[in-house]
Design a protein around this nucleic acid. Structure first.
Lengths: 190, 190
DNA sequence: GTTGGCTATCCTACTAGTAGGTAGTTCAAT
DNA sequence: ATTGAACTACCTACTAGTAGGATAGCCAAC
């Protein structure tokens, strides 16, 4: 089963966004990477704003269903959180996706087309909500002992994850991600 | 005393970088904001890469001397750290500089001209080193009790700061910065 | 079962506008 | 007289986006 062209376009565009943000790539870049003419990309995605909007939508959709399936299939809040962090650790270590699309776009949110900005904001809200729910479950089962409200601890954890991605990238040291994020999980455990 | 044109150019360029990153602005944008022709900017800064390089250099220089003067003039490691965090909290709340130039550029470090990337990396190293030294001093004076090595805690703190900036921006909630970063300082205190 | 239409995909060729950058000039202050 | 800083005018390359045509597959109707 061949992959659909529009999916290929989105895949390439996503890796380009991860590398350089919204203004860091052009239709010509995608064209070259996919092996298709520029005009053909406009056939699938009339404007750049639409392309990125669909891209972010797909990303948030996948993230949400991925997180929810973790919550269903992984036993225990501690393991769920660990699985989430492991996922990113792997992505960063093997450079398959060394940065979160939405974190990248959030940095330039002021310059983004409004619909894209809205989707990015929603991803942050979703992620915070997921982390909150896992923390709450952990507290109920006496697996976590939090110094603050679960909502607050979720925000702290999310910020640590994004900050750790940034440090790993800035210092060119992929293993820094785990070194920063590991202790943050550890200190939540009861 | 009128401000020098080259400084005006750097000021505008810096605010544009903070808003949209390296590829988020053009000489035309600066031209308009400064009230000068495009070619005149090239007189001061022949290439965009040089302009941003000087910009980052000025930024890191200021940051380093600012941090060092904190360490000299503010009594006590706890207060020094608090002063650093307060500085950013103020910048974000009054929107005067709602994001760190180097954090912004670090996100797109793969696409930056090599000399710029090097300067950005150095800022991360400098900041981590400053935080480490303050934490060490605090431990010696029994003001901090760290669960990990000071170098590690410094990385965690730095990541929290950058992640908190990102969350505040993404969610359009400036006060989120303090809500994330405050508890991180609190948990270090003995 | 072949014809004819419909649609999806991709193409060539083009547009207007913007990117970073250059050449050469003017002009005031040294 | 020289210099620094500004200017006008321009260049080439690239940007997102458009117009219109070629090819192929599918799905009737005959």
């Amino acid at each position: 089963m061949e992959q659909a062209t529009s999916e290929k376009i989105l895949d390439i565009a996503q890796s380009l966004v991860v590398a350089g943000g919204y203004n860091g790539f052009s239709y010509a870049d995608i064209s070259e990477a996919v092996g298709i003419r520029k005009a053909s990309i406009h056939h699938h995605f009339p404007t750049k704003a639409e392309l990125v909007q669909v891209l972010v939508d797909r990303y948030t959709q996948r993230a949400e269903s991925g997180l929810n399936s973790l919550r269903e299939h992984v036993p225990g809040p501690v393991e769920q959180l660990q699985a989430y962090l492991n996922y990113w650790q792997k992505c960063i270590l093997d450079a398959s996706e060394p940065f979160c699309v939405c974190a990248m776009l959030a940095a330039e949110i002021q310059m983004l087309p409004e619909p894209v900005a809205t989707h990015v904001r929603r991803h942050f809200e979703n992620l915070a909500a997921w982390l909150t729910s896992v923390l709450k479950a952990g507290v109920e089962q006496k697996l976590f002992r939090l110094a603050r409200a679960p909502e607050e601890e979720a925000q702290i954890l999310m910020a640590s994850v994004h900050g750790a991605m940034l440090s790993a990238r800035a210092l060119g040291n992929p293993s820094l991600f785990a070194a920063i994020v590991g202790p943050q999980l550890a200190r939540l455990k009861a």
